[in-house]
Design a protein around this nucleic acid. Structure first.
Lengths: 332, 332
DNA sequence: CTGTTAGCGCTTTCAA
DNA sequence: TTGAAAGCGCTAACAG
């Protein structure tokens, strides 16, 4: 902001109108006579005038900024969702302010404080972890919030968009059982994520219905820690199917299984979750739950936009349908 | 912004000082007597007062927002860089505004217009494509810009941070040659990216020095279009080494080569670029250039911060060192 | 249809 | 060390 920028005054001066008129052609063009509107627009283009979003925000008490609070951008699920959000935010004329939730020494208090200070008109919460503290902060917020791809306690009433992870896990577990699999392992993350917990619940339910004992291995999302853990486990445990709560975990298991001499999918079938590029690059290619993350992002932005316009949502908890992609790591 | 927020006036009132004093304890605490400072701070905490960033931005003519213009968030290189940026931005007290550069029908003109309007104090440009138009816009910007992970023409003087992709490609090509490889293929993207061009230049230089003919295959970054193209190519072309300009492309080639009955790394050695999780999940694991993307993000944010403080940079074009990670897809 | 006039919530001289 | 007052660039009544 060193060079002087052209302001609404200069435009007004050059167009021989008051600044109010310039403001009107920008915000309510229909309220201005066509001839003057065109004259003003001409000057705007000529001068390359761009209304100062900050001043506009202050005067109108709405910033046209939305905040998105996210954990790690390198997570496939958040990256794609952000792409979806960006697409719509742009169409709606909102700018996106990002609030990383996983900094070194940032408490969720700090994050919410930043969100409040930034005067965003709404917030999209993509951070997988929602603590009671977070819910508390959310309830004190004066702007609408939409929670995407995070499961909340049943009694929460915040607007959410999700896929039914529990049902997805239930469904593939059932499939494996129906194909005669009896030692179905769930490769779960060590850290607790609401979505991964849901997957586990679905998995457990299917097994229980079939009277089969669960085999749950808690491990990391990182390949280099995964390999030894999984190798160790598979050496002493017999397994004929594996469900990884993430594609990367599933592929790590698949690789280990093959290294140990098992045939995938004949001896062991493997399913993942997410349908990332990782699934396609595995050999055999990974069967997986297709999570339409981009869609989730778009949908949540759409809901937020409705809320920011003070309109009612026709559905508070949106469930986006998932797909099951069968590839080489499973039979049929 | 529906509920009323606490403003500086209320704090001032309750603390029995003028709003100027409150402003001072926030911005120049040393200029306020300790006793009143503490009193004011007490009220601030009690009321949960958060200065309105928008108003502050307007009055001070600096927004404490930085803009980052990025293509696709799902690209591993940008996601990690954004993580690095976020870490430092946060420490420095800047908020991050993102400007997606690859929307449906967004021209670079629109993107820059948005950037200008948003009143950011500086911008980080991570978008791989830099057109002449972009350079033009950059030159008219009144705030500092740092360009990360993008190669510019030699005559540009903008601050940049990169790794030496040309040298990296040159180096691994030399390695392959020194191990007796004579039919070294470069799996290149179809679309032109400045960084990938640099890789090609390094590759070509090494081959030329050795008097070996280049084999360049232009293909996509997407696995499903890659497989048929690469399969087709490798069926009719003999090759004893492959360098993929991205890990994902390299792994696709590796998989195809093995499917065609070649032994990796004995018959064909494979190198990738980036060192993503993809490289670790391949079998054999992919040897690759380790690109410290997170570091690049951090470094560029650091430079931007210096520039925004009107201090001089001691280096305009920063080159971050890369690593070469040898894994199972190459010999030794 | 257009202009005048208050602010939005804060920073920043300038005096006191 | 503190307060008063003048804006920052814009929107939004309210008149005309």
């Amino acid at each position: 902001m060193k060079k002087s920028k052209v302001t609404i005054y200069e435009v007004a001066g050059k167009a021989n109108v008051s600044l109010a008129t310039v403001s009107r052609v920008l915000n309510y063009p229909e309220k201005v006579k066509a001839s003057t509107r065109e004259r003003v627009m001409g000057v705007i283009n000529e001068l390359g005038y761009r209304p100062n979003a900050i001043a506009r925000g202050l005067a109108s008490r709405k910033s046209t900024f939305i905040g998105i609070v996210v954990p790690d951008f390198s997570r496939a699920s958040v990256a794609e969702a952000v792409n979806g959000i960006a697409l719509l935010a742009n169409q709606y004329g909102y700018q996106i302010l990002v609030f990383p939730a996983e900094g070194e020494n940032r408490s969720s208090k700090d994050v919410w404080a930043d969100v409040v200070a930034s005067q965003v008109d709404g917030v999209l919460y993509l951070n997988d972890l929602v603590t009671d503290k977070d819910v508390e902060y959310m309830n004190t917020m004066s702007v609408p919030i939409v929670i995407a791809n995070v499961l909340l306690d049943k009694d929460q009433t915040m607007p959410t968009v999700n896929i039914d992870y529990e049902r997805a896990a239930y469904e593939i577990t059932k499939k494996l059982i129906s194909r005669g699999r009896k030692q179905i392992m769930l490769a779960q993350t060590r850290r607790e994520y609401s979505m991964n917990n849901a997957k586990e619940i679905g998995y457990l339910r299917a097994l229980k219905e079939a009277g089969i004992d669960p085999i749950v291995l808690r491990t990391s999302g990182k390949p280099h820690v995964n390999y030894p853990v999984v190798t160790d486990f598979l050496r002493k445990t017999t397994v004929d199917a594996i469900i990884g709560v993430r594609d990367s975990i599933a592929v790590a298991c698949l690789n280990v299984a093959m290294d140990l001499g098992h045939n995938v999918p004949n001896d062991i079938e493997v399913y993942g979750f997410q349908n990332t590029r990782t699934a396609l690059l595995a050999r055999p290619q990974l069967s997986t739950i297709d999570v339409p993350t981009f869609e989730i992002g778009k949908r949540s932005m759409e809901m937020l936009s409705i809320l920011m316009n003070d309109e009612p949502l026709d559905q508070n908890a949106v469930i986006i349908p998932y797909g099951i992609v069968e590839r080489g790591s499973t039979k049929q």
